[in-house]
Simulated assay, not measured.
Amino acid sequence: MTRIKICGLTNEQDVHLCASAGADALGFVVEYPVEVPWNLNRETARRLMARMPPFVTSVAVVGDDPDQVLGIAETVKPNVVQLHGREPFAVTAEMIRGLKSLGIGVIKALRFSTDSGELDYDLADPIEACHALAEAGADAIVADSFTRSRPAGTGKRFDWKVARFLGDKTPIPLILAGGLTAENVGRAIVEVNPYGVDVISGVEGRDHKKDPDKVRAFVQAVKSTRCRAGD
């Protein structure tokens, strides 16, 4: 069954909308080091996570500075932290150890350029990166796209063949992100067979608030695809 994460939650209305629509996890961008429309301070993120219903996973999306990341985790207390910055592998491994000591799961994003297709990481080989992260204790990988102007939430996809190859080779679950919408997520699931899918701009209006019709259509598209796959 393909899990669904909806990211970039900024208000209680959207938390209720996405949870009631059937999302398995909700993502909150917390004090991210690059300016993005979804950024929250840690107190707001903690308040919104407290409004989440049982059995929905809370994910704090953070990046770069180890002390800041651990401070956010200690304050917000999410189920999972998603490291989505440019932290090199040695720093990533340090943060994984610290977060695991707090009982918090860890997802690491591997970001692929929409222009060149290259991985933006100091371990340039994606397979090597996945295996190293697995050995360091990461629980899952997010394969996402990035552009020169935006590190995530680009609304653009990268090569799904790369994602499928990565998913087949990585020893830990692969979550697919980047340019997903209700219109293409079914095909993405068939082509990539990811553990989960992660969406942000694909379920929003122009104001970066979640669009109820887009949210419900996305969740339904994922559920109908995974049901067909199980027949």
Rank of each mutant, 00 (worst) to 15 (best):
residue 179 G to D: 14
residue 66 P to M: 11
residue 72 I to S: 01
residue 136 A to Q: 07
residue 125 D to Y: 07
residue 70 L to C: 03
residue 68 Q to H: 14
residue 120 D to Q: 10
residue 136 A to V: 01
residue 93 A to S: 15
residue 163 A to R: 07
residue 157 R to I: 12
residue 27 G to H: 05
residue 52 M to D: 13
residue 68 Q to R: 15
residue 65 D to Y: 03
residue 210 K to M: 12
residue 74 E to F: 01
residue 66 P to I: 06
residue 89 F to E: 11
residue 60 A to E: 02
residue 189 I to F: 01
residue 112 F to A: 00
residue 116 S to L: 08
residue 127 I to P: 00
residue 193 N to L: 12
residue 53 P to F: 06
residue 107 I to M: 08
residue 215 V to Q: 03
residue 36 V to C: 10
residue 63 G to I: 10
residue 146 F to E: 01
residue 96 I to Q: 09
residue 157 R to S: 07
residue 188 A to E: 13
residue 154 T to W: 12
residue 96 I to P: 10
residue 27 G to N: 03
residue 132 A to I: 08
residue 140 A to G: 09
residue 188 A to S: 12
residue 227 C to N: 10
residue 69 V to A: 04
residue 42 R to L: 06
residue 88 P to R: 09
residue 160 W to E: 00
residue 93 A to Q: 15
residue 7 C to A: 04
residue 75 T to C: 09
residue 206 R to M: 01
residue 198 D to R: 11
residue 181 T to P: 07
residue 11 N to A: 12
residue 30 V to C: 13
residue 109 A to T: 14
residue 204 E to Q: 11
residue 102 L to P: 03
residue 9 L to V: 15
residue 95 M to P: 07
residue 144 D to A: 00
residue 213 D to P: 00
residue 198 D to F: 12
residue 152 A to H: 11
residue 195 Y to S: 12
residue 208 H to P: 02
residue 167 G to F: 07
residue 105 G to C: 11
residue 121 Y to I: 05
residue 225 T to M: 06
residue 12 E to H: 06
residue 197 V to S: 00
residue 21 A to L: 05
residue 130 C to Q: 01
residue 150 R to Y: 09
residue 116 S to V: 07
residue 191 E to Y: 13
residue 24 D to Y: 02
residue 51 R to S: 15
residue 108 K to M: 04
residue 172 I to M: 05
residue 38 W to Q: 12
residue 184 N to D: 09
residue 138 A to T: 08
residue 12 E to A: 15
residue 196 G to W: 00
